[in-house]
Amino acid sequence: MDWQDYLAPLSQGAWVTIELTVYSTLLGALLSFVFGIGRDAHTRLLRWLSIGYIEIFRGTSLLVQLFWLYFALPVIGQAIGVNLQLAPVTAGVLALSLNIGAYGAEVVRGALKSVPRSQHEAAVALNFTPRQRLWRIDLPQAIPEMMPPFGNLAVQNLKDTALVSLISLGDLAFRAEQIRNFTQDSTTIYTMVLLMYFGMALVLTALMKLLEHRVGRWRTEN
C-alpha cells in the first residue's frame, strides 16, 4: 500500500474531525456567551454558577473531562437508575464544547469589560435598560474584540478533537492509528495526518479572519 491508498480512509476521518470541530465550536461559542455574560451578572446564583463552570473546566484537563463524561457519568447513572452512558460522539462534542466554552467565557467577559465606561454612561443618559445596554451597546462593541482570541480557540478546538479518538470515535487521529496498526507505515501516515490537520487549521484560521472582518466592519470604516 502506498500513500494514495490511505487517502480515502483518512479523508473519512478528516470529515468526522471537521464535523466535531464545527459542532463543538458552535456549542462552545454559545456556552462562552452564556457564562461569560453570567460571570458578571447581577444575580448571585448566575454569577456563582458561571464561576464554578469556568474554574472547573479551565482548571482540569480536557482528557480528564472527556473520560469523566464517558466513563464516570454512567456510574452515577447506575447509582440513580438512569442510563447515562453517552454515545462517543455525544461525550466528545460535550467535553470539547464545555472545555472550549470555559476558555471562551473568559474571552467574552474580558471583551465586555474592555468596552469603555463612558459608553455605559452614554447609554444610561439615553435611558437604555440594562438588557438593551448589553445587546445594543456592549456586545456589538465587544464582539470584534473577541474575534482574534476566538480564532485561536477554534484552532485549539480543532487540535483537541484528536483526543476523542481515545474513546473510539472514528476521527482523523483514530483512522490514522487504525491504518498504522495494519500497515506499520508510521512515517507516511503521520506525515499525511499532520499535513491534513495543518491544512484544516489554515482554512479555519482564514474563515475566522473573514468573520472577524465582517463583525468589525464599522471599525475599518472609522
Binding site: 463612558s118 459608553q119 454612561e121 452614554a122 443618559a125 451597546i137 471599525r219 472609522n222
Partner: peptide, 12 residues
C-alpha cells in the same frame, strides 16, 4: 439629556 466631554458616541 447630557452632552459629554468625550462625546461618548456609539462607535459601531
Amino acid at each position: 439629556g447630557m452632552v459629554f466631554q468625550q462625546f461618548n458616541l456609539f462607535p459601531h
